[in-house]
């Protein structure tokens, strides 16, 4: 076996994610890295459905399904309760989608991180409200079609940079990860598990249904997001120490866009503009990481 990924599974088959679901793959890797001594908080998101209708559960760890906006506050409460009971071992993990993180749950998340609550917040990002029918979120990227940004009214605002928003809180640890890079993802989750304080991991998770792509392309597209610099793999400690974990091949962004139906309306000019935006973001990141490589 080429990759060092733990063998043990903490997920059962029979979940109800769409075929090729990136969020299901992300959950599988994250649980492999975390092990069993955890409590998971899942605010409303695709995974509220995927985990199975009552009385079934697809996860081998305790899960608390909670309201949309409460990912940060419920985790804070559970951690406090565990401390009262003298359990300093169990890790509290919030598992939320981009809607529950970038938009609806942002206040609770920001509050918890500001208090430096001792928990891990994982956002699996599929770039829109997928299970309610593909409505745009503040994580939906510039240029994307959704059911609320249809036709020529495609989204003309940038994707919110959630990692930078949390870095501004001087969060203990923030990192990006991607389902096409399992080793990097698992290393980051393990690293986060061994820290104290608030930790945030942002996982890029393809949504074949919402992005209008064939299910078998899920990983390929996720990998392309990294190779084009659209979703760089990096981590930030204590809000200041940046590390870029992977040097991308630097493909043109159109290689990524042309694979997806949600971007099919974009013209060459639009793609050129997006290329510039991506390059600008990448240069900014390089500066923050102290890399001055002219590129």
């Amino acid at each position: 076996m080429e990759l060092s990924v733990p063998d043990r599974e903490f997920m059962y088959s029979g979940h109800v994610a769409c075929p090729g679901c990136g969020a299901a793959i992300a959950m599988r890797f994250v649980l492999k890295a975390l092990g069993e001594k955890i409590i998971m908080v899942i605010p409303a998101c695709c995974w509220s459905i995927i985990a199975g209708p009552y009385p079934m559960s697809t996860l081998r760890v305790p899960v608390l399904h909670t309201a949309f906006e409460t990912g940060g506050s419920v985790a804070s409460g559970i951690k406090a309760a565990l401390e009262v009971r003298g359990d300093h071992e169990t890790t509290v993990v919030t598992w939320a989608g981009d809607g529950g993180t970038f938009d609806i749950g942002f206040q609770a998340l920001s509050g918890a991180v500001e208090r430096n609550e001792d928990f891990i917040y994982i956002c699996y990002d599929n770039e829109a409200y997928m299970n309610t029918g593909i409505q745009r979120s503040s994580s939906t990227p510039y240029g994307a079609w959704t059911t609320t940004t249809p036709g020529q009214d495609w989204k003309k605002m940038r994707k919110k940079n959630i990692v930078e928003a949390l870095v501004a809180h001087r969060i203990r640890y923030a990192a990006t990860a991607n389902i096409a890079f399992p080793e990097d993802l698992i290393n980051k989750v393990k690293k986060a598990k061994n820290m104290k304080g608030s930790r945030f991991i942002h996982i890029f998770s393809t949504c074949p249904t919402g992005w209008r792509v064939p299910s078998e392309m899920s990983i390929k597209i996720a990998r392309m997001a990294v190779q084009t610099n659209i979703f760089p793999l990096y981590e930030v400690e204590n809000g200041v120490e940046y590390t870029i974990n992977y040097r991308p091949k630097g493909y043109l962004v159109k290689e990524y866009f042309k694979l997806q139906g949600r971007f099919s309306h974009l013209t060459e000019e639009d793609l050129d503009q997006i290329q510039e935006m991506v390059e600008e973001d990448w240069k900014l990141l390089l500066r923050k990481a102290g890399v001055f490589s002219g590129s």
Binding site: V16, G52, Y54, P55, S57
Partner: peptide, 14 residues
Amino acid sequence: LIPRSYKTSEENKT
């Protein structure tokens, strides 16, 4: 008052 799952999703033959 919280309902609690008691079986796995494996009976769901997807």
